[in-house]
Write a protein that binds this DNA or RNA. Structure first.
Length: 102
DNA sequence: GCCATGGCTAGTA
DNA sequence: GCCATGGCTAGTA
């Protein structure tokens, strides 16, 4: 499977999110210079061939809600939990504090 | 034309 | 809730 320039940029940025932290689709789009492509970022992460090495489970929505995951939301929540990140009714607990700003 | 988003507005309580 | 957004793919010709 061949990755586009855009997809590579998305994965490269995502790789930098530290363990136990989260960021947003919008933050990724901003940092790679495609400010309005947050949705396209989600599309790219959907195809992440390197999960969980490239930790796309640490990317969530700008409002602190979980967002999607190709193996199902449940799996995403479990992976986050394994890093000490709690989810309270579909939302990241302490979102502001855990938000990794590039 | 689809979609793992985001930001804004109306309008409820 | 609505809709602009942008990258990608299926599938036509």
């Amino acid at each position: 499977m061949r990755l586009s320039i855009f997809e590579k940029a998305v994965l490269e940025a995502t790789r930098k999110i530290p363990f136990g932290r989260v960021t947003t689709y919008g933050e990724i789009s901003r940092i790679i210079g495609r400010r309005r492509a947050s949705r396209a970022v989600g599309n790219a992460l959907n195809k992440n061939p390197y999960s969980p090495i490239v930790p796309c489970h640490r990317v969530v929505k700008s409002n602190g809600k979980i967002g999607g995951f190709n193996k199902g939301i449940k799996a995403k929540v479990k992976m986050l939990a394994s890093e000490g990140i709690k989810v309270r009714d579909g939302r990241i607990f302490d979102f502001q504090k855990l938000f990794y700003h590039f």
